[in-house]
C-alpha cells in the first residue's frame, strides 16, 4: 500500500516536471465549399421526445460555426506522444435526452469508463457499431441504472439507436489523453505536450481525416490549422 502510494507520488513528480516545459498545439478547423444543409429530424413517432424540442432538431453529422468553422472534429495526437498509459479515473458520460445523444461526439481514452444514461421516458437501445472492439447492443428501458462499459482498443465507433433511427453519435476511443473536440468557430487546443515530434490528426465523421506533422520545443504554442472540403450532398 505504502509502496504504491510512493510510486504514484514519484510518477506525479516526474510528470509535473515534464509539464513545466510543455508546449501547446492550438488552431482551427474550417471547411471550404458548401456543406449540405442539415436536415430536419421528424420525431413524430416518439411524442415524448418530440415535445422536448421547441424547434425540431437537425442532423448533426456536419455542424458548422461562424467563419466556416467546422465543429465536432476530433483533433488528437496520433503518434509521437508517449502514451502515459494513464486512464482517467473519471468516467465519461453519454446522455440520451429528448431522443438525442449528448454530446454528439464523445472522445475518451482506451479503457476509460463510459457511462450511458437514459433521461427519456422511452426505451433506447445503444448500438455502437464497433469493428475492432467487441460489438454490443443493449437496451435501456426508462428508469434503469446507467450502463457502464469500456473499450479496449482505439477506434472511432459510430453509435446508433435502433429504436430511433435518427439518433446517431460517435465514440472516439483513443490511445492518448491529448485530444480535443473542435468547438464554436472550429477552435481546438492540445495543451501540455512535452517537447518532441508529433503527428496531429483531425477526424471528421463525414469528411474524413487530415494529419499534420509538427515539432514542439519547450514552452512553445504551435498553430496548426485543418481545412476540410465540404460535400454538397
Amino acid at each position: 500500500m505504502r509502496t504504491k502510494s510512493m510510486l504514484v507520488g514519484v510518477s506525479t513528480l516526474l510528470m509535473s516536471s515534464s509539464l513545466m516545459f510543455a508546449g501547446t498545439v492550438s488552431g482551427k478547423v474550417t471547411f471550404t465549399g458548401t456543406p449540405a444543409k442539415p436536415k430536419t429530424i421528424d420525431m413524430s413517432k416518439e411524442p415524448s421526445c418530440a415535445k422536448q424540442h421547441a424547434t425540431p432538431l437537425t442532423t448533426e453529422s456536419v455542424v458548422t460555426g461562424p467563419n466556416n468553422g467546422l465543429e465536432n472534429v476530433v483533433v488528437y495526437v496520433s503518434s509521437g506522444a508517449p502514451d502515459d498509459g494513464q486512464v482517467p479515473a473519471q468516467a465519461v458520460t453519454y446522455e440520451q435526452k429528448g431522443c438525442q445523444y449528448l454530446p454528439h461526439v464523445l472522445p475518451m481514452h482506451v479503457n476509460q469508463e463510459l457511462k450511458i444514461t437514459n433521461e427519456d421516458q422511452t426505451s433506447h437501445n445503444i448500438h455502437p457499431l464497433a469493428k475492432v472492439n467487441h460489438e454490443w447492443n443493449k437496451s435501456q428501458p426508462p428508469g434503469t441504472p446507467a450502463i457502464s462499459e469500456k473499450y479496449e482498443k482505439a477506434e472511432f465507433i459510430s453509435v446508433k439507436c435502433n429504436v430511433h433511427p435518427w439518433m446517431h453519435g460517435v465514440f472516439a476511443v483513443m490511445n492518448t489523453n491529448h485530444y480535443d473536440l473542435s468547438k464554436g468557430g472550429g477552435a481546438f487546443k492540445l495543451p501540455n505536450l512535452p517537447p518532441g515530434k508529433y503527428t496531429i490528426t483531425a477526424w471528421h465523421e463525414d469528411y474524413g481525416t487530415q494529419t499534420a506533422d509538427i515539432t514542439i520545443t519547450s514552452n512553445e504554442t504551435k498553430d496548426v490549422n485543418f481545412t476540410f472540403k465540404a460535400k454538397a450532398y
Binding site: 426505451s123 443493449k138 437496451s139 428501458p141 426508462p142 434503469t144 450502463i147
Partner: peptide
C-alpha cells in the same frame, strides 16, 4: 407492469433485465 423490476431477474440476465426491469429484447 412494464417498468416494475422483477426482483432477481437481473441475475438471470444482467443485460436482459438491468436492475430487474425487462428490456424489449429480453
Amino acid at each position: 407492469w412494464n417498468s416494475t423490476a422483477i426482483p432477481g431477474l437481473q441475475f438471470l440476465s444482467a443485460s436482459g433485465a438491468p436492475g430487474g426491469v425487462m428490456t424489449p429484447e429480453y
